[in-house]
């Protein structure tokens, strides 16, 4: 399984269409299979991001806000999208690998931390 998280600093980025940094991780039931890699995009473009997601054969996308049309497009392409997620991306990745992540999850560690 391959997960893509849109990131901003140490957190999941607030918006899918404004993101230019991504984290891609592969895992199996035993855990991560290799070191997650980060990708810097040339600039924020939701269309380019959707293409990249399909090109990389991503199974799960974790992001903050996402427009309905991009969400539906990815769903149509059989990519599972967990949106409106707030929190540090490493904790979010951990939850996703344990199948405990849901859309709208706000991690406690996201509260009362300094703005990024």
């Amino acid at each position: 399984m391959k997960i893509l998280i849109t990131i901003s600093g140490d957190n999941v980025a607030p918006r899918f269409d404004m993101v230019s940094e991504l984290l891609i991780a592969s895992y199996n039931p035993k855990g991560l299979t290799g070191k997650p890699r980060t990708i810097l995009m040339a600039g924020p473009s939701p269309e380019d991001l959707c293409s990249l997601i399909l090109k990389e054969d991503i199974n799960i996308v974790i992001c903050g806000g996402i427009e309905e049309r991009h969400y539906k497009y990815l769903a149509w392409k059989k990519v599972e999208v967990f949106d409106s997620v707030i929190g540090p991306f490493n904790e979010v990745l951990d939850l996703a690998m344990k199948n405990k992540l849901r859309s709208g999850t706000i991690l406690l560690s996201a509260r009362n931390v300094r703005d990024t």
Binding site: P14, R15, M18, G64, I86, R111, V113, R114, D115
Partner: peptide, 24 residues
Amino acid sequence: EDALGVPGNFIIRSDLHTRGQPFR
């Protein structure tokens, strides 16, 4: 209830932050 204590830009989700950090 959900948003209390969460950094504002994660809740507002504006595009202002692409043009610098206006809040700060």
